[in-house]
C-alpha cells in the first residue's frame, strides 16, 4: 500500500499539474445516450492522476438530482430518448447540458435512421459542445473548466 501511494505521489509530482486559480465546483452527471464506449473511457480518465478534474472541484455525482451539468455521450438512440429526458427533468436549476464527442454533435454518425433520434441538440438545449472521436481527457477537462466562468 505504501509503495502504491509513493508511486502515485511521484507520478503526481512528475505530471506537475498547476494549482486551481480559485475555489469553485461543478457536479457532473453522465448519461450515455448511445455511444461506442470511447467517450466513457476518456471521461473516466479525467479523474485520473494525469488530469485530476477534482482539483478544480469537478466530479461525477451518482444522481442527476445532485448535478449541475448533464454530460451526454453518443447519438441519442430511440431507446435512450426517454431515460435522457428523465435524467434532465430530475436536475435542479440552474443546469447545463454538454454534448460530449462527435456522435453527440451529430458528426459522422453511423446507424439506422429508425434506431436513432438524433444529436443531443435536437432534444435538449446544448450549452457546450466538446468535439472529438473521442475527445482526449485533456480536451474534455479544458472544455468543462470553461463552464466555471459561465
Amino acid at each position: 500500500m505504501l509503495t502504491l501511494l509513493r508511486d502515485l505521489r511521484r507520478l503526481r509530482r512528475s505530471v506537475a499539474l498547476p494549482a486551481p486559480r480559485r475555489p469553485a465546483s461543478l457536479a457532473l452527471r453522465h448519461v450515455d445516450a448511445g455511444s461506442c464506449n470511447g467517450c466513457e473511457h476518456e471521461l473516466t480518465m479525467t479523474a485520473g492522476p494525469y488530469v485530476d478534474l477534482a482539483r478544480f472541484g469537478l466530479g461525477v455525482v451518482a444522481s442527476p438530482r445532485h448535478a449541475d451539468v448533464l454530460l451526454v455521450t453518443g447519438t441519442v438512440t430511440t431507446r435512450m430518448h426517454e431515460p435522457l429526458l428523465r435524467a434532465y427533468a430530475a436536475m435542479p436549476e440552474p443546469r447545463r447540458v454538454v454534448a460530449l464527442g462527435d456522435c453527440a454533435l451529430g458528426c459522422n454518425v453511423l446507424g439506422l435512421a429508425g434506431e436513432l433520434v438524433g444529436p443531443v441538440e435536437d432534444i435538449l438545449t446544448v450549452d457546450l459542445t466538446i468535439p472529438g472521436c473521442p475527445p482526449s481527457p485533456e480536451t474534455i477537462a479544458a472544455a468543462l473548466l470553461t463552464l466555471l466562468d459561465r
Partner: peptide, 10 residues
C-alpha cells in the same frame, strides 16, 4: 440493447 444503433443493418 439500449444503445442498439442498427449498425449491422446500416
Amino acid at each position: 440493447f439500449y444503445k442498439h444503433r442498427g449498425l449491422e443493418r446500416a
